[in-house]
Each structure stands twice: as C-alpha cells, then as structure tokens.
C-alpha cells in the first residue's frame, strides 16, 4: 500500500484499469513502455477527487465494489475482470481461480479459457482478509507474520469472525502457544474455502487477492487437497490487470 493518494499517468499512457475493493484500490496503468501497478487504501483513494475522473479521455475500465465511483469508466463485473487478468497474465486455459479479498472470496472455474461457473462466499467475513486482520491484531502480530503459519490442529470452531476473536483470547488465557493458535486460524480459513474448491476438478488452483500473500494458507491448500496452487506475480492486481487489458483492447 502506498502513502501517495494520487495516480500519476505517464505521457505515453494507453489504458487504465481500476479495481476498487472494499479495503484497497488497485490500479494498473498500461503505457507504450509496459505497465505500472499501484495500490491505495480505498477510503483514502475515494477522498482524493482527482482519482475519480482518472484518465478522462482514455480507455478506462473499473470493477469492484467502488466501480461506479470511477467516472468515464466502463464497468465490468468482477468475475470477468479477475478472470481476464489471470488468463492474460498466465496464458492458461483450465484452472480454478481462488480470489480472497478484504471481505469476500470468489471461486471461478475456467475451462478452455472461458468462465464455466463461479461461486462467492455467503454473507460472512469469515475466511477473508478482514478476518485475518482481526486475528492478527488480537495476537499483536502483522498479517504477513500470521500468514506464514500453515494450517494445523483444530480449527477455531466459531462460525463468526467476531466470536472467533473471543475464542482466540480464550486460547491465549489457557496458555496455548502462538504456533497452535495461528495454525488453527489458518486451518479455519482453509476449511472455509475448501467446500467451494472441491466443487470443481482439482487440477490447478490459481490463488489471487490480498490473502494470497499468506504463504502458509497456500501450502495448506496444496498439502490438504493435493492440488497445485500457484500464486502469480502481482496476485493482488488480477482485477486491475484484467480491467486495463479490457480497456486496451478497445483501442485495437
């Protein structure tokens, strides 16, 4: 996340993609010389008025919860943006895309380069980035540190993020070690997404979104489901990359 709140466009800009999520806003700017990626806190991003008419007169495509806030942009559904981003970045035709963001997760099945089906989590933040943030804060550690743990032992049993917080505090009171608590937290996230992944062939999982930074979770999915899990470079930017790509195509 950058402290800057303004998106700078180079002179040779071709297209802009904006993925305004619930927690962070990802921007991809394509130019003659390649592409630049940047990430902002969504709240700060919106409060800078210049950002909302970013790239006026250019091909701009937006997606995410805040997609309507970006003026002059063509709005595309998230599933399309993320899938185009993944297909374009990786050049693959058959895979399951697991995107875990700030407050929801999406599982999209891609076959022969086309979307075959998708599912999103039910109305609950458990198993999302917000859940990991809350748990990390209770344990007084960074999300990165928490994300390094692999899922193990008994998952936390509460079905609600808020109650899980009390459960974690209870475990600390009982003198349980960091290893055990963190293992349980990652295990709960894994068990939350597992039934969604198991609906589709377990050939290849492409893991994206903010939570894909949690290496321990990636290992857990790989180990438990015996499936290859790839986290692409710039895995948090799939939506923005997809948008910029869709925008660029309008020039062709």
């Amino acid at each position: 996340m950058t402290d800057r709140i303004r998106v700078d466009l180079p002179e040779d800009v071709l297209s802009v993609g904006v993925d305004m999520g619930s927690r962070s806003t990802k921007v991809c700017v394509k130019s003659q010389n390649g592409q630049t990626l940047s990430m902002f806190d969504s709240y700060r991003f919106i409060s800078h008025p210049g950002n909302l008419d970013i790239g006026k007169g250019l091909p701009v495509v937006s997606t995410g919860y805040g997609r309507d806030r970006i003026q002059h942009a063509r709005k595309v559904p998230e599933i399309r943006a993320h899938t185009v981003g993944a297909v374009y970045t990786l050049g693959l035709g058959d895979f399951t895309l697991l995107d875990i963001g700030g407050q929801d997760f999406k599982v999209t099945r891609v076959e022969n380069g086309a979307i075959r089906d998708f599912h999103m989590n039910d109305k609950c933040a458990a198993g999302t980035g917000r859940f990991l943030e809350m748990m990390a804060s209770v344990l007084d550690m960074s999300v990165d540190e928490l994300g390094r743990f692999e899922g193990s032992g008994v998952p936390l049993e509460s079905t609600c993020s808020v109650f899980t917080e009390s459960e974690v505090v209870g475990m600390m009171m009982e003198g349980k070690g960091k290893e055990e608590i963190c293992g349980g937290i990652i295990q709960s996230v894994y068990e939350r997404v597992r039934p969604y992944l198991r609906r589709y062939p377990l050939d290849l999982v492409i893991f994206t979104g903010g939570v894909s930074k949690a290496e321990g979770l990636r290992f857990t999915i790989q180990r438990e489901l015996d499936v290859e899990v790839k986290v692409p470079k710039s895995s948090q930017f799939m939506g923005a990359l997809g948008c910029a790509e869709i925008a660029k195509r309008t020039l062709e």
């Binding site: 919860y65 595309v76 559904p77 998230e78 599933i79 399309r80 899938t83 185009v84 297909v87 929801d104 380069g113 086309a114 979307i115 998708f118 999103m120 109305k123």
Partner: peptide, 18 residues
C-alpha cells in the same frame, strides 16, 4: 454483494469471450 453476483451472472450468460 448481490448486485456483483447478478452482473457477473448476466455477463457469463451474455457469452462474450474473455
């Protein structure tokens, strides 16, 4: 959240290539 799902569904039904 519901709107996002709905739009994605209509998009997939529309069958536009990726």
């Amino acid at each position: 959240r519901t709107r996002i799902r709905l739009e994605a569904f209509l998009d997939v039904l529309g069958g536009e290539a990726l």
